[in-house]
């Protein structure tokens, strides 16, 4: 681990980017690959345990007349089922567990990232792109598996004149290839930007407070700003998890139901 060098580069006393740094907690090396347990992986495991506990204790009794907790679990499930039904249709039912896992994992990761001293798993492009690339490959495989060669007709919108084909097909391919990029960058950028802003305004509060005198009073302004930002970030965290899951269903729909 190049622990010391990274410290030198990124740890300029609570800089706004330091919160994104990966800090190894326990070094693990497998065949020369660095698989260390880091703050990031610890949070992932934490999310996993949290979601499991949420589901397990919510559905432990599975009563006909649900309590508040069970209603939350069922509501979330219903929400995902509705999303899948609306965007894919009855053929999409088998993807509900995947979409549900995706949505709840990203949702918990985003919201947990707003806790003080926390690490936001989804603020790393490596993580969001891993998701997006997996979904991308899955879409292609499902498309070919379900429709065979006919699925490549997806790149040719119906009613294209033959002389436009050399132009339209590359455009459609580029459009298709840019899906994992937009999907991953959107989530990553939203999480990162919000957290940097929060950190910068928090830095203003601290430095104004330290400056003393009249500046401490002025420090109330960024504090109020931060409070408002925090509420906004909470909404962004939820909306981005929703958008990620929604676009995944939209992309899956293109592979499952050939529109044209």
């Amino acid at each position: 681990m190049s622990k010391t060098t990274t410290k030198k580069v990124y740890s300029d006393v609570a800089g706004p980017l330091e919160q994104f740094d990966i800090k190894p907690l326990y070094d693990i090396n497998v065949a020369g690959y660095d698989l260390s347990l880091t703050n990031s992986s610890a949070w992932m495991i934490g999310i996993l345990l949290f979601v499991w506990a949420f589901m397990f204790f919510g559905m432990r009794k599975a009563e006909l007349v649900p309590g508040r907790w069970q209603s939350m679990v069922e509501g979330l499930h219903e929400f995902v089922v509705g999303m899948v039904d609306e965007n894919i249709g009855p053929k999409g039912r088998s993807f509900v567990p995947f979409i549900f896992s995706l949505f709840i994992f990203i949702l918990v990761a985003n919201v947990a990232g707003l806790l003080p001293y926390s690490f936001t798993v989804t603020s790393h492009i490596a993580v969001t792109f891993a998701f997006a690339a997996f979904i991308f490959v899955m879409c292609i495989l499902i498309g070919i598996f379900r429709h065979g060669f006919a699925w490549f007709g997806f790149f040719l919108p119906p009613g294209t004149p033959w002389y436009l084909m050399p132009l339209i097909i590359p455009i459609e391919i580029i459009s298709f290839l840019s899906r994992p990029i937009t999907l991953s960058v959107r989530l990553f950028a939203n999480m990162t930007a919000g957290h940097i802003l929060l950190k910068i305004f928090a830095g203003f509060v601290v430095s104004l407070g330290v400056a003393g005198g009249i500046w401490s009073v002025v420090g109330v302004l960024p504090l109020a700003m931060n409070t408002a930002l925090y509420a906004l970030e909470l909404i962004v965290a939820i909306v981005q998890a929703y958008v990620f899951a929604l676009l995944t269903t939209v992309y899956l729909n293109d592979s499952i139901n050939l529109e044209h």
Binding site: S2, I22, D34, S36, S40, S41, M44, V121, A130
Partner: peptide, 14 residues
């Protein structure tokens, strides 16, 4: 430095 351990752990936990 950052990508591989995260992806492996993500694959595992997700």
């Amino acid at each position: 430095r950052v990508a591989l351990p995260q992806i492996i752990w993500l694959f595992f936990s997700f």
